[in-house]
Amino acid sequence: MTIPLPGLDLQQLGPEQSLRAFIGWWPDAQTRLYLAEQAVQAQVIYGGRMMHADHFHLTLAFLDGSSVSVLQALAENMADWPVPAITLDLTLRDVFEKPQVVWAGPDESQRQALTVLDQWHEDIWARLTALGWTQPPRRFRPHVSLLRHARIAADQSHRHALPTQAFVGDGVGLIVSVPGEQRSQYHLAATVNPGRAVS
Protein backbone atom coordinates (compact mmCIF):
# COMPACT_ATOMS: atom_id res chain seq x y z
CA MET A 1 0.00 0.00 0.00
CA THR A 2 1.56 3.28 -1.12
CA ILE A 3 0.05 6.76 -0.94
CA PRO A 4 2.66 9.06 -2.55
CA LEU A 5 2.31 11.95 -0.12
CA PRO A 6 4.55 13.36 2.60
CA GLY A 7 3.61 12.22 6.08
CA LEU A 8 2.39 14.52 8.82
CA ASP A 9 2.63 13.74 12.53
CA LEU A 10 -0.48 15.29 14.06
CA GLN A 11 1.10 14.98 17.50
CA GLN A 12 3.56 17.71 16.52
CA LEU A 13 0.79 20.28 15.93
CA GLY A 14 -1.20 22.41 18.32
CA PRO A 15 -4.43 20.60 19.31
CA GLU A 16 -6.67 23.57 18.50
CA GLN A 17 -5.18 24.24 15.07
CA SER A 18 -7.74 23.71 12.30
CA LEU A 19 -6.95 21.83 9.09
CA ARG A 20 -9.06 20.87 6.09
CA ALA A 21 -9.15 17.10 5.86
CA PHE A 22 -10.72 14.21 4.00
CA ILE A 23 -10.59 10.43 3.76
CA GLY A 24 -9.40 9.44 0.29
CA TRP A 25 -8.88 6.27 -1.73
CA TRP A 26 -5.60 6.54 -3.66
CA PRO A 27 -5.00 4.88 -7.04
CA ASP A 28 -1.79 3.11 -7.98
CA ALA A 29 0.90 4.59 -10.23
CA GLN A 30 -0.57 3.18 -13.47
CA THR A 31 -4.01 4.62 -12.71
CA ARG A 32 -2.46 7.98 -11.81
CA LEU A 33 -0.63 8.02 -15.16
CA TYR A 34 -3.92 7.42 -16.98
CA LEU A 35 -5.59 10.19 -14.98
CA ALA A 36 -2.75 12.59 -15.79
CA GLU A 37 -3.23 11.88 -19.50
CA GLN A 38 -6.95 12.54 -19.20
CA ALA A 39 -6.29 15.77 -17.32
CA VAL A 40 -4.02 17.02 -20.11
CA GLN A 41 -6.69 16.28 -22.71
CA ALA A 42 -9.41 17.90 -20.62
CA GLN A 43 -7.33 21.04 -20.06
CA VAL A 44 -7.22 21.63 -23.83
CA ILE A 45 -11.03 21.92 -23.70
CA TYR A 46 -11.63 23.55 -20.34
CA GLY A 47 -8.44 25.32 -19.32
CA GLY A 48 -8.18 25.43 -15.55
CA ARG A 49 -5.58 23.97 -13.22
CA MET A 50 -4.62 20.30 -13.42
CA MET A 51 -4.46 18.30 -10.24
CA HIS A 52 -0.97 17.29 -9.24
CA ALA A 53 -0.43 13.68 -10.34
CA ASP A 54 0.22 12.50 -6.76
CA HIS A 55 -3.02 14.15 -5.61
CA PHE A 56 -5.43 12.13 -7.76
CA HIS A 57 -7.86 10.37 -5.41
CA LEU A 58 -11.46 9.34 -4.86
CA THR A 59 -12.89 11.14 -1.82
CA LEU A 60 -14.80 8.84 0.54
CA ALA A 61 -15.60 11.51 3.15
CA PHE A 62 -14.86 15.24 3.16
CA LEU A 63 -14.31 16.55 6.69
CA ASP A 64 -13.82 20.26 5.91
CA GLY A 65 -12.06 22.21 8.69
CA SER A 66 -11.36 20.09 11.77
CA SER A 67 -9.23 20.64 14.86
CA VAL A 68 -6.01 18.70 15.20
CA SER A 69 -7.22 17.11 18.44
CA VAL A 70 -10.28 15.69 16.67
CA LEU A 71 -8.17 14.48 13.75
CA GLN A 72 -5.76 12.80 16.19
CA ALA A 73 -8.65 10.82 17.68
CA LEU A 74 -9.83 9.85 14.20
CA ALA A 75 -6.33 8.76 13.14
CA GLU A 76 -6.11 6.43 16.13
CA ASN A 77 -9.60 5.03 15.49
CA MET A 78 -9.48 4.36 11.76
CA ALA A 79 -6.49 2.02 11.45
CA ASP A 80 -8.64 -1.12 11.64
CA TRP A 81 -11.62 0.06 9.61
CA PRO A 82 -12.73 -2.47 6.96
CA VAL A 83 -11.78 -1.93 3.33
CA PRO A 84 -14.01 -3.74 0.81
CA ALA A 85 -12.73 -5.34 -2.37
CA ILE A 86 -14.09 -3.29 -5.27
CA THR A 87 -13.65 -3.81 -9.02
CA LEU A 88 -14.12 -0.36 -10.51
CA ASP A 89 -13.46 1.09 -13.97
CA LEU A 90 -12.99 4.73 -14.91
CA THR A 91 -15.09 5.17 -18.05
CA LEU A 92 -16.54 8.67 -17.96
CA ARG A 93 -15.50 12.32 -17.93
CA ASP A 94 -17.97 14.90 -16.66
CA VAL A 95 -18.09 18.20 -14.75
CA PHE A 96 -19.38 19.78 -11.58
CA GLU A 97 -20.47 23.11 -12.96
CA LYS A 98 -20.66 25.35 -9.88
CA PRO A 99 -17.30 24.41 -8.32
CA GLN A 100 -15.71 24.40 -11.83
CA VAL A 101 -14.35 20.87 -11.54
CA VAL A 102 -13.76 18.38 -14.37
CA TRP A 103 -13.64 14.77 -13.18
CA ALA A 104 -13.31 11.14 -14.24
CA GLY A 105 -15.34 8.30 -12.78
CA PRO A 106 -17.43 5.19 -13.33
CA ASP A 107 -20.61 5.24 -15.39
CA GLU A 108 -23.94 4.03 -14.01
CA SER A 109 -23.68 0.59 -15.66
CA GLN A 110 -21.23 -0.51 -12.94
CA ARG A 111 -24.03 -1.18 -10.50
CA GLN A 112 -22.25 -3.67 -8.27
CA ALA A 113 -19.20 -1.45 -7.81
CA LEU A 114 -21.34 1.63 -7.19
CA THR A 115 -23.46 -0.24 -4.64
CA VAL A 116 -20.37 -1.38 -2.73
CA LEU A 117 -18.93 2.13 -2.89
CA ASP A 118 -22.17 3.60 -1.54
CA GLN A 119 -22.19 1.09 1.30
CA TRP A 120 -18.54 1.85 2.09
CA HIS A 121 -19.25 5.58 2.06
CA GLU A 122 -22.19 5.12 4.46
CA ASP A 123 -20.16 2.83 6.74
CA ILE A 124 -17.39 5.44 6.97
CA TRP A 125 -19.90 8.15 7.78
CA ALA A 126 -21.55 6.00 10.44
CA ARG A 127 -18.15 5.69 12.10
CA LEU A 128 -17.46 9.41 11.71
CA THR A 129 -20.87 10.30 13.13
CA ALA A 130 -20.10 8.18 16.18
CA LEU A 131 -16.95 10.30 16.62
CA GLY A 132 -18.91 13.56 16.44
CA TRP A 133 -18.95 14.54 12.78
CA THR A 134 -22.17 15.44 10.94
CA GLN A 135 -22.69 13.90 7.52
CA PRO A 136 -23.37 16.56 4.86
CA PRO A 137 -26.58 16.19 2.84
CA ARG A 138 -24.88 16.19 -0.56
CA ARG A 139 -25.20 13.14 -2.79
CA PHE A 140 -22.15 10.88 -2.99
CA ARG A 141 -20.85 10.79 -6.57
CA PRO A 142 -17.65 8.72 -6.82
CA HIS A 143 -15.15 10.65 -8.92
CA VAL A 144 -11.53 11.70 -9.31
CA SER A 145 -11.00 15.41 -9.93
CA LEU A 146 -8.86 16.17 -12.98
CA LEU A 147 -9.11 19.97 -13.22
CA ARG A 148 -10.10 22.82 -10.93
CA HIS A 149 -11.06 26.38 -11.94
CA ALA A 150 -12.20 25.05 -15.31
CA ARG A 151 -14.15 27.13 -17.83
CA ILE A 152 -17.44 25.24 -18.00
CA ALA A 153 -20.20 26.48 -20.28
CA ALA A 154 -23.56 26.35 -18.54
CA ASP A 155 -26.55 24.36 -19.79
CA GLN A 156 -24.48 22.06 -22.00
CA SER A 157 -23.74 18.37 -21.76
CA HIS A 158 -20.12 17.73 -20.81
CA ARG A 159 -20.46 13.97 -20.38
CA HIS A 160 -17.80 12.17 -22.41
CA ALA A 161 -16.85 8.48 -22.64
CA LEU A 162 -13.24 7.68 -21.77
CA PRO A 163 -11.06 4.69 -22.67
CA THR A 164 -11.74 2.19 -19.91
CA GLN A 165 -9.15 2.08 -17.14
CA ALA A 166 -9.36 -0.01 -13.99
CA PHE A 167 -9.13 2.05 -10.82
CA VAL A 168 -6.57 0.03 -8.89
CA GLY A 169 -6.59 1.19 -5.28
CA ASP A 170 -3.28 1.55 -3.49
CA GLY A 171 -4.29 2.86 -0.10
CA VAL A 172 -6.94 4.63 1.96
CA GLY A 173 -5.81 7.50 4.12
CA LEU A 174 -6.68 10.48 6.27
CA ILE A 175 -5.37 13.42 4.27
CA VAL A 176 -4.90 16.94 5.58
CA SER A 177 -4.39 20.00 3.41
CA VAL A 178 -1.56 22.22 4.64
CA PRO A 179 -1.50 25.76 3.20
CA GLY A 180 1.60 26.69 1.21
CA GLU A 181 2.96 29.81 -0.48
CA GLN A 182 1.41 29.00 -3.87
CA ARG A 183 -1.02 26.17 -3.19
CA SER A 184 -1.96 23.78 -0.44
CA GLN A 185 -0.08 20.50 -0.14
CA TYR A 186 -1.71 17.22 0.80
CA HIS A 187 -0.15 15.31 3.69
CA LEU A 188 -0.88 11.78 4.88
CA ALA A 189 -1.86 11.73 8.56
CA ALA A 190 -3.08 8.12 8.93
CA THR A 191 -3.94 5.04 6.86
CA VAL A 192 -6.71 2.47 6.97
CA ASN A 193 -5.48 -1.12 7.26
CA PRO A 194 -1.81 -0.23 6.69
CA GLY A 195 0.07 -3.04 4.98
CA ARG A 196 -3.02 -4.42 3.28
CA ALA A 197 -3.46 -4.07 -0.46
CA VAL A 198 -6.72 -2.47 -1.53
CA SER A 199 -8.36 -3.88 -4.65
Rank of each mutant, 00 (worst) to 15 (best):
I3F: 04
P4L: 06
G7N: 12
L8S: 08
Q17R: 15
L19W: 10
R20Q: 06
R20V: 03
R20W: 02
F22Y: 12
W25E: 03
D28E: 13
T31C: 03
R32N: 05
Y34C: 07
E37D: 14
Q38M: 14
Q38G: 02
V40I: 11
Q41N: 09
A42H: 04
A42K: 06
V44W: 07
Y46S: 02
G48Q: 12
H52P: 00
H52S: 10
L58H: 00
L58E: 01
T59E: 02
L60S: 00
A61Q: 08
F62M: 08
S66L: 11
V68M: 06
V68Q: 08
S69P: 00
L71V: 09
A75W: 04
E76K: 12
N77I: 02
D80H: 04
D80S: 12
W81D: 01
A85Q: 12
A85K: 09
T87M: 04
L88M: 10
D89M: 13
L90C: 04
T91D: 08
R93E: 11
R93Q: 15
V95S: 05
P99D: 09
A104Q: 02
P106G: 15
D107V: 05
E108L: 13
R111C: 03
A113W: 03
A113E: 05
T115I: 01
T115M: 08
L117T: 12
W120C: 09
H121I: 08
L128P: 00
T129I: 13
T129H: 06
G132C: 09
T134Q: 13
Q135K: 15
P136R: 11
R141W: 03
L147G: 01
R148K: 15
R151W: 01
A154L: 14
A154M: 06
D155Y: 09
R159E: 11
L162F: 07
L162N: 06
P163S: 13
G169Y: 03
D170C: 13
D170F: 00
D170E: 15
G173L: 02
S177I: 02
V178Q: 14
P179M: 10
Q182C: 00
S184V: 02
S184Y: 00
Q185V: 14
Q185T: 15
V192P: 03
N193L: 14
S199P: 00
